[in-house]
Nucleic acid binder design. Structure first.
Lengths: 130, 130
DNA sequence: CCCGTAGATGAAAACTTTTTTCATTGACAG
DNA sequence: CTGTCAATGAAAAAAGTTTTCATCTACGGG
């Protein structure tokens, strides 16, 4: 999810491209899995309310994804499909690309459920904490 | 996770078995995936603070599990291993037992990560909403 | 069975996080 | 350039959670 395509999505849907929104996008691009506090620190000139509203907007556009991994809300740019490995000791979050889900074993057919997305989180201890 | 074994875990670790704690356990047993509000409604005589503290305690004992599926905290009795299927339209949560994870495809070896647990959430549309 | 005590409870207050309100500002189409 | 309507920001409100502290009680020892 490049900054240009995000801006294009906003323009395409009739939303204005303001410096504040661009600043929030830039903050999100700097690091994945940031807390609201972290994002705010990266765009000092933007009011808290605007950060909240921008994250909502970007979320509804599918540009950012909100994570709840047990320690409050975190946000990531919804780029590629990936999953999370969370260390229960130090809280470090790492990503992995290969999807370990076997879709054949998701019991959707008999329940008539249409899958649109999924998430996988693996909890444990990272190498540094062992 | 029967009520008796939960009580046993509490006793075993030196925690007192109070009527309030039993009431919260009973509320949790009545339905999975309840919000704090729902749990509170099922044990009217128990103060909010005590419900929070009891959920914390039961969580640390591994008796309940906290879920963050996008619409605030929910709690479930940590019984069997199971995963969640969430309808993005009506918010209904259903469970499935069969684990669709292929552990061989979790890249833990090269990263020296020790897996202790995992969660899988499948999002989409349920039969009723389609 | 009763007592003493450490742990548990509940009300209020404090805090944190998120949303609403509303006057002002500014992006951008024409 | 100009007008308009969405966007912004400060303050206040609302929602969610934790701390404080005085009182109460589960339960082991007597």
């Amino acid at each position: 999810m490049s900054l240009e395509s995000a801006v294009g999505k906003m323009r395409g849907r009739g939303y204005k491209v303001t410096p504040q929104r661009v600043a929030v996008l830039g903050a999100l691009a700097a690091e994945q899995h940031q807390s609201l506090e972290g994002i705010r620190a990266r765009c000092p000139g933007v009011g808290m309310v605007t950060v909240y509203r921008t994250l909502d907007l970007l979320g509804s556009l599918g540009i950012v994804r909100r994570l709840d991994l047990g320690d409050g809300a975190r946000y990531e740019l919804a780029a590629d499909h990936h999953h999370h490995m969370i260390c229960e000791s130090c809280g470090d979050i790492s990503e992995f690309e290969e999807c370990p889900l076997d879709s054949a074993r998701i019991p959707t057919q008999n329940q008539g459920f249409e899958v649109r997305s999924h998430s996988v989180e693996v909890y444990g201890r990272c190498a540094a904490c062992l």
